[in-house]
């Protein structure tokens, strides 16, 4: 191998220098990751076994698994978990199907297609804060101040109190989130669609396959890996829901939009139950890791 020959030409001093250089080059990044990622992870788990109230940092006492028992007995925690799961189970398929549909619309190489791509992607470039505020106003319960209700009234429906009705609040957040996020998955699908060889479509059309058949028997199998990947990242992102309920509903009405991250935030930063919040964070962390491992496993086998 030419590679080893060249390596053999090197003087040993350089090799020693390289060893040092590699460590030096990666040192700043590694130190930053240790200080602000690894240490907080360790502390999250560590404090989850302690009674630690922010107001009384002098009286930190070891609590064993008391926090965990308390957490599993807390109705609010289960509600938060249920809400997070509900959001995830609905938003993931809706957002992914929408994203695939959009990708199919703009997969063509026609001139000006990037304008349409930009249109579908634009909610994604806009921040979640902006989108959440905008939709809070769009969702306004009265037909005279809410654009969506004005539209519904015109069609002889409504008015719907989207964000203040426990039945509709989370669904309204799901609809908005899918709309905001779909552009992102669309871009990944576009890359996947690009990877399907054109000959497969030609062969299918020679065999007399309709457009629908081509989609089912060429596009979908060709996209399988992309679909799995998109499902995974959408799933993990959905589990972290916080900004939308924080801005739009403050977790209400009747706690129907309070999510796990919201619960952690509330316990830790608002109520000051720091140790207890770390317990919830540890459980959240475990759920996300286990979920992503399961999805990874599922995507590997087939």
């Amino acid at each position: 191998m030419a590679n080893t020959e060249v390596k053999a030409m090197r003087r040993p001093e350089y090799k020693r220098g390289e060893k040092m250089a590699g460590s030096i080059m990666s040192l700043p990044a590694v130190l930053l990751l240790l200080a602000f990622l690894v240490v907080p992870i360790i502390y999250t788990i560590y404090y989850s076994f302690f009674k630690y109230q922010v107001m009384r940092p002098d009286s930190i006492t070891f609590h064993g698994i008391t926090n965990y028992l308390k957490l599993f007995g807390d109705k609010d925690f289960w509600v938060a978990l249920k809400n997070t799961v509900y959001f995830t189970v609905l938003v993931v398929p809706i957002q992914c199907v929408l994203a695939l549909a959009l990708a199919m619309l703009v997969t063509s190489k026609r001139r000006g297609v990037s304008i349409f791509r930009t249109m579908y992607f634009s909610p994604q470039v806009t921040s979640m804060v902006v989108i959440a505020i905008l939709w809070t106003i769009l969702y306004n319960s009265s037909a005279t101040t809410g654009l969506i209700n004005a539209f519904l009234k015109n069609m002889g429906m409504g008015p719907v109190d989207f964000l203040n009705n426990p039945k509709t609040a989370m669904n309204s957040i799901i609809f908005m989130s899918a709309w905001q996020g779909a552009g992102y998955q669309m871009m990944i699908f576009l890359a996947g669609l690009n990877g399907i060889p054109a000959e497969q479509y030609e062969a299918a059309s020679v065999d007399g396959a309709t457009k629908v058949q081509q989609f089912l028997y060429v596009t979908i199998p060709g996209l399988m890996n992309t679909i799995k990947y998109v499902l995974m990242i959408t799933l993990i992102q959905a589990m972290k829901l916080f900004t939308q309920p924080y801005i739009m509903t403050k977790g209400g009405p009747q706690n129907t939009t309070k999510t796990l991250v919201f619960y952690i935030y509330e316990q830790g930063f608002q109520k000051g139950n720091f140790g207890y919040a770390c317990t919830a964070a540890t459980i959240f962390f475990i759920i996300v890791v286990v979920l992503s491992l399961i999805v990874k496993k599922l995507t590997k086998t087939s």
Binding site: I236, Y265, F285
Partner: peptide, 20 residues
């Protein structure tokens, strides 16, 4: 470590990070 921590949800560690 870098690969393992890539899917780490930052939301889970914000409390100790804040204390830090």
């Amino acid at each position: 470590g870098v690969i393992a921590l890539m899917s780490m949800p930052v939301e889970a560690i914000l409390l100790p990070l804040y204390i830090e």
